[in-house]
Computed example of a mutant assay.
Amino acid sequence: MPETPDLADYEWPTCPCGRQLRNDELGRVACRLCQDRADTVLRQLPGPKGLYAGLARVLVPGVGSGVRVTGSRTAPLPLRLEPLSLQARGGVVTVLQTWLVDWHELLEWRHPRWRGGLQQQLDDVVHALRVNLEWAASSHPAFGEFTHEVSSLVRQCERQISGERPERTVSVACECGTILRVTVSTPGARCRGCNTQYGRGEVLELPLAERVAA
C-alpha cells in the first residue's frame, strides 16, 4: 500500500501577501483579494481624470501640486522632474507595457502593439492588464511583484499630484542576512537571498538592519 503523507509536514499554500489561500483558491498564485486590489489600483490610472493624466497638471513648479513657490533667487526648473519622469517614456506607461509583454510571452501570444500617444497607450495597456488579471493571479509566478510594482507607481503618482512627502524607507534584515527595503505600506516582500515570502505584518516585524549589524 502507498504510504500516507504526513500532514504535519504539509505547508498550506499562501498568497504573496502572506494570506493562506482558501479551499476555492488552491492552485492559484494569488488570492482573490489581491487580484481585486490590483484591479482597483489599475483603475486609478487611465482616463482624462485618472492619475496619469493628473501628472500633466503638476509639471510646472507650484501649480496644482501643493508645492509652495519660494522666494529663492534661483530660477526654478521649467518642469518638475519627478512627475515628468513618471509621465514620460520609461515611466508608468513603459513599466506597464513591459509587464504586458511578459504576460504575452508566457501565454505565447503575439507581441502587443502600441498605438497613439502615451495617454492612449496607458489607457490601452491598463485595459489589457485588467482583462487578463484572472489569468495572472491564477498562473503568473511573479504576480506578487506585479502588484507591488503597480501599487508603488500609483502611490508615486498620488504623492506628486497631492504634494505629499514620500514614505520613509527602512532597511530590515531577513533571517538569512539579506537586506530588504520596505515602507509602512509595503504589502509584503520576497527575500532575494533565500526566496522566503513575507506578508505585510511579517516583513514589518523583521529586525532593523542597523541593529543586526551592531
Rank of each mutant, 00 (worst) to 15 (best):
A38P: 00
V154M: 04
T4E: 13
T98H: 04
C15V: 09
P16E: 03
H140V: 06
V182T: 10
R22L: 15
L81Q: 14
G90N: 07
L26R: 10
S152M: 08
R89G: 07
T4M: 11
I161R: 07
V125G: 09
V125Q: 08
T98S: 12
R192F: 05
G64N: 15
A88S: 15
L79V: 15
A56I: 01
S171F: 00
R115C: 00
S139W: 08
E134D: 12
L26D: 07
Q156P: 02
A136W: 01
V172P: 03
C176S: 06
P78E: 10
A8Q: 09
Q97R: 14
E205T: 08
E202H: 06
E205M: 12
E145K: 07
P78Y: 11
Q120T: 14
P141W: 01
L79G: 01
V29K: 02
R32P: 00
E134H: 10
R181Q: 15
C194Q: 05
P166G: 07
E167S: 09
C31I: 06
L55N: 07
A30K: 04
R19D: 15
A213L: 11
R130H: 04
V182Y: 02
E3V: 13
A136K: 00
G62T: 06
L21G: 08
L59R: 11
H104Y: 08
R113C: 01
L55C: 02
L180K: 05
T178L: 00
R159M: 13
A88Q: 12
N23K: 14
E134R: 11
T70L: 11
T169V: 15
C174Q: 03
D24M: 06
P13Q: 09
